[in-house]
């Protein structure tokens, strides 16, 4: 989640339902069968990147260790269909795409967020 001091001069924009969000998922949040753990969606304010200003690769490369992260995408309309969730553009000085998915992440919400997430960049093979 963005701190006030991080908020840049970027204008906060309304995000259309037709757009998509990218979210990084760390290697330790994958199960052995390579599916994502529900714990990846537990943050009350969940940081994502708005596809209007970020590619999936950009989202991955913003991680401290990109090779340890995968990227999933979520349709904004599907996120908003989940009860009590809001999609709020919250640009940072170094990341205009930064967007928070705000709202309590109950077990139901985590299950539903996981279901609507599609893997777009899988984890890199650690042996490669």
């Amino acid at each position: 989640m963005a701190n006030e001091s991080d908020v840049a001069a970027w204008e906060v924009e309304p995000i259309p339902d037709s757009d998509e969000l990218y979210k990084r998922v760390h290697r330790n949040l994958f199960k052995p069968d390579k599916t994502i753990m529900t714990g990846a969606f537990h943050h009350r304010s969940m940081s994502t990147d708005w596809a209007k200003y970020s590619s999936a690769d950009d989202a991955r490369n913003r991680a401290p260790t990109p090779d340890d992260n995968a990227v999933v995408k979520m349709a904004v309309s599907e996120v908003r269909q989940i009860q009590d969730l809001a999609v709020e553009h919250s640009p940072l000085s170094e990341n205009r795409s930064h967007t928070d998915v705000v709202g309590k992440k109950s077990q139901k919400v985590q299950v539903l967020l996981r279901r609507i997430s599609t893997l777009v960049i899988p984890l890199a093979d650690p042996e490669a």
Partner: peptide, 23 residues
């Protein structure tokens, strides 16, 4: 699946074709 959550809690997750349960 017995999985970690970043806040230190633990999820028990059943993810089958016919049902899903998260505790």
């Amino acid at each position: 699946d017995i999985t970690p959550v970043p806040d230190g809690s633990i999820d028990l997750h059943w993810d089958s074709p016919t049902y899903e349960m998260l505790i």
